[in-house]
Amino acid sequence: MTTIQHISTGRRVKDRIVQGLVYLAFALAVVPLVSVLWLVISNGLARFDMEFLTHSMRNIGARDAGGGAYHAIIGTLEQVLLASVISVPIGLLTAIYLVEYGNGGRLSRAISFFVDVMTGIPSVVAGLFVLAFWILFLGMPYSGFAGAMALSILMMPTVVRSAEEMLRLVPGDLREASYALGVPKWRTIVKVVLPTALTGIITGVMLAVARVAGETAPLLLTVFFTDSINNDPFSGPQMGLPLFVFDQAARPNDTAIDRAWTGALTLILIVMLFNLVARLIAWWRSPARGR
């Protein structure tokens, strides 16, 4: 009777080593996440107070303590809202074109390809474009709106892709049923297809918002800086929370660095909040919950 032979030690060791490396890779990837979050929370909590959330940096000298990011928070919220107002209709309509009207023709393939390519545009290039077109070419001033335009360029491809995915999930039967009732195509899309895909689309938009809310480079080139509160995104320099962090981090004294950390904490909270809301909407609608 021959016994079942064991595999060679070499093969077993190699298998174990690779397994170890794969686990190590995952650990390596998680370490910076934990480290970043830990540092932001521990350093950011020191100044995370009402003054920070309700005051601007107006009349706060370079070495002074105190001051806050109220102007930056207002700026970020307004810019992100405006960016959504610009990018969501264009993105959504483009997705509708791709799914309902495109038919895989040459134009739709070109759009689809460049939407993918657009996701790879560096955010600083989007900022430079708005700078070149809006501020230098048209001679408009730096403003929150200019920043919103740059952010909207970064949002659009994400909105198109997520909306497209959701629209494709809507069963063809639903459309057919509507056509069978004599409802024209555009009304079918507006009254039947869009409502069915709505929560999925909202999730996608929220994730896109979360992504651009943390962008600094495009704002740097388009909204410029201010230490004061400017509630009007259409006139004059504004601030944005990422910009606030960048600005404070570049100042060489501890009170500014403290403000940078607290700004980072506020920014992460806002970004994570958008992320969380997006996931909650997705979860609330997911089939696993039986809807």
Binding site: T3, Q5, H6
Partner: peptide, 20 residues
């Protein structure tokens, strides 16, 4: 049992079973 030897014995590796 493969010729009397238990394929599910704790010391037997699935990889060597599949080899045979």
């Amino acid at each position: 049992l493969l010729d009397g030897e238990d394929l599910y014995a704790p010391t037997v590796e699935p990889v060597s079973v599949r080899r045979m």
